[in-house]
Structures are given as structure tokens and as C-alpha cells.
Simulated scan of single mutants.
Amino acid sequence: MTGLPPAAGPREIYRIDWLPGTDVLHGTCHCGREHTAQDPVEMWEWMLAHPQGHATGEPRGNGS
């Protein structure tokens, strides 16, 4: 037992990968939408604005 409380339900997972050899970041939101950007602030603003900018009715893929 680690002393940590049990998970309180599903977690939202955000992922940002750096594309080696470039200045490009590739983000994947917990909803499955993807976006690329060179600016890390732009990337986080896009992810945290959910669902603005990537509502469920929009097609999946590069949001740039």
C-alpha cells in the first residue's frame, strides 16, 4: 500500500510530443483531437480550451 488515495474516476490525458529535428510540437487531447504548433503556449491554450477549437463535431486530424 502506497498511502495514495484511489483514483476518483477517469483521468484526462493530454500528450505533447516534440518532432525530432524540427521546432514542431504535436499534441493529442484527451478527446483524441490532434494539433501541431511551434509555440508551446499556443499548444497548451488549444488543449485547455476544450471543447472550443476542437468540438466533437469537427473532423479529427491536424488542427493547424
Rank of each mutant, 00 (worst) to 15 (best):
T2N: 12
L4N: 15
L4H: 15
L4Q: 15
L4P: 09
P5C: 07
P6G: 02
P6R: 06
A7E: 11
A7D: 10
A7P: 00
A7V: 04
A8R: 08
A8D: 12
G9E: 07
P10H: 08
P10A: 13
R11K: 11
R11G: 10
E12C: 09
E12W: 08
I13E: 14
I13M: 13
Y14V: 01
R15E: 11
R15D: 09
R15S: 10
R15K: 13
R15Q: 12
D17W: 01
D17H: 02
D17F: 00
W18K: 13
L19G: 06
L19V: 12
L19D: 06
L19N: 11
L19W: 06
P20K: 09
P20M: 00
G21N: 09
G21I: 00
G21D: 09
G21H: 02
G21M: 04
T22K: 11
D23C: 07
D23I: 00
D23F: 00
D23K: 04
D23E: 11
V24P: 01
V24K: 08
L25W: 08
L25K: 04
L25D: 03
H26L: 15
H26V: 14
H26G: 06
G27A: 15
G27L: 01
T28D: 07
T28R: 14
T28L: 14
C29L: 06
C29D: 06
C29V: 04
C29M: 04
H30S: 14
H30I: 04
H30R: 07
C31A: 13
C31L: 10
C31T: 09
C31E: 11
C31G: 12
G32K: 02
G32L: 03
